[in-house]
């Protein structure tokens, strides 16, 4: 269990999340991928907090959790409001603002 193993885990989670953000068209699946991206950062923060011997990294994980909860609440409110107008959660139906 070297620090490099945490790099592998974090990199794999980040790659999976980024793949989902690029490929998926469903807004809920996009939110799932965003949560994976946030979690991959958390893994490295925990690993380096352990490695350095102080707990500042774990405090930042705590803050990231709070921000993720706020993001989920606001994002889902926007998705529900959009669903009420368009009866769809596909991003290609929301392209009226695109240039």
């Amino acid at each position: 269990m070297t620090p490099f193993d945490f790099f592998i885990l974090s990199g794999l989670l980040f790659a999976v999340g980024l793949f989902g953000v690029i490929v998926r068209r469903n807004v809920i699946s996009l939110f799932f991928s965003l949560e994976l991206l946030l979690n991959s950062a958390n893994v490295l923060l925990v690993a380096f907090s352990r490695l350095h011997g102080n707990l500042f990294g774990e405090v930042f994980v705590f803050f990231v959790l709070a921000v993720a909860a706020a993001e989920a609440a606001v994002g889902l409110a926007i998705v529900v409001a959009l669903y009420r107008y368009r009866k769809s959660v596909n991003t290609e139906d929301f392209s009226t603002l695109r240039w």
């Binding site: 269990m1 070297t2 790099f7 980024l18």
Partner: peptide
């Protein structure tokens, strides 16, 4: 991005938590 993260982390190969 996966390979660039692994490349950046390769110098932490030794050591342990």
């Amino acid at each position: 991005l996966l390979f660039s993260i692994l490349y950046a982390g390769y110098r932490f190969y030794g050591g342990s938590i």
